[in-house]
Amino acid sequence: MTSVLLAGAGAAMADSDRRIEEFGPIPNPLGTPCEIEFDRDGYLWIEQIAANSMGRFDVESGEFREYPLPTPGAIPGGMELGPDGGIWFPEVIGNQIVRLDPATGGMREFPLPWAGALGNGGGGRYGASASDDLTFGTDGAAYFTLIGLSAIGRLDIKTGEFSKIPIATGAVIAIIQPGPGDTIVAAETVRNQIVVLDLHTLTVREFPLPQPLSGPQGITTGIDGAVWFTEALGQRLGRLDVETGEITEVDLIAKRGDQPLPITPGNPLPVPTTMKTAGDGKLYFTQGGLLFPSFGNKIGVYDIRTGQLEEITTPSPASTPCDLNTQKDDEVWVGLLVANKVGRIQLG
């Protein structure tokens, strides 16, 4: 474990009137922060992908501590604060689910029971399951992606029991989130569909997108009860009414109106990737993240009540916003992959 202080950078004026305050850089040059999560004591935990570690940031004091994963080269995936107070995340290559104790930084690994990369019958240290994101359902269980197995995994965190929910062959799910009611939702990036998992029956419904090669990735539940998602290749946002199956889309390029493509040290296209609903009821989405590394430097904001689009530029050029956190009602936090920093947007 290492400990240093992170300084808050001076906030730069964004395209809108709002600002992003940046903290960093992270001491480890291989930090590459993506997903971030607050624990119950208010510490911000940071997924450090290339460094194979987890960072803990004290927003008030600026102190930063680093905790390496027990398994070398395991690569931490997207995390979530569990109902037990632990920080839970998968290992993309390590073939395990991890519980991090926020009080100590200690980690307990739960090996996935499915075959590893060498087909060793399960329990292998390194695996082809490629679980890269995790969330919790209303039943208290952890649900996680299994890219290499075209499935969604489930872990009962009380008993340690694993189960697997198959999807169609070739389904590539990178992000998984709570859906409306007792559902879990995910985007099938390659097969161009939205997945809705019923937690009562553990059955899957798939909703094909209207336009081919849209590249859905980020997904969240809006304040209107619908499932909203990003289309990274289509430069659009989408809305799914789970009850009717109706899908409507928002063209981000058209929403920009007559504005010219921005000439900045970042990708001029939106490339919407991860997305969350914030405390102000708006959709916040990153532009150019890990799966579509376009070196973007903006956070998009879409108001589903008015249809207005806002874009906020990060002070760091080509920062590549990777993932968002909206646990706090009055703030949005973002991991800046290439800039090796974390950022904060104040709401209100």
Rank of each mutant, 00 (worst) to 15 (best):
G116N: 07
V301D: 01
L209R: 06
I194L: 15
C34E: 15
D224N: 08
K255Y: 07
D133L: 03
F136L: 01
G153H: 10
N192W: 05
K341G: 00
S214V: 00
G86M: 14
I36M: 12
V185H: 08
L336I: 01
I299D: 03
G140Y: 11
T286C: 15
D323L: 09
V271T: 10
D139E: 05
F292D: 08
Q96S: 14
F144L: 04
I157V: 15
F144H: 05
L134I: 10
Q327P: 01
G42T: 03
P111I: 00
D329Y: 06
I87S: 02
E188V: 00
R125L: 05
N340H: 10
F89D: 01
P70W: 07
I304G: 02
Q96V: 04
I223A: 14
D258W: 01
L81I: 03
D101K: 09
E22C: 05
D15N: 10
E66I: 08
T169F: 12
S3C: 09
L112P: 00
L134T: 03
Q48N: 15
E246H: 14
T135N: 10
T159A: 12
R19A: 09
D17K: 13
S131F: 08
G300Q: 06
L44V: 01
P27L: 09
D241L: 06
L202W: 14
Y284M: 01
L69P: 06
L5F: 14
G119K: 09
I49T: 13
Y143E: 04
I46E: 06
P317T: 00
G85C: 07
A141K: 15
F292N: 12
G137N: 04
E246F: 12
M54W: 15
G296D: 07
N192P: 03
M54H: 10
I176W: 08
L44K: 09
R40C: 01
Q308C: 00
P72E: 11
G78I: 05
L283K: 04
P70T: 01
L100W: 10
S16P: 02
M54E: 10
G73M: 10
S61Q: 10
Q211V: 12
L336Y: 10
G106I: 01
E310V: 11
S3Y: 05
V338N: 14
Q259Y: 05
E231N: 12
R236A: 13
D303G: 03
A339Q: 05
K341M: 08
S319I: 05
N52A: 12
T189K: 11
C34W: 15
P212K: 09
G106F: 13
P90N: 04
G234K: 05
R154K: 15
P293H: 08
G245V: 04
D224T: 03
T201K: 12
A141R: 15
D303L: 08
D329H: 11
P321W: 08
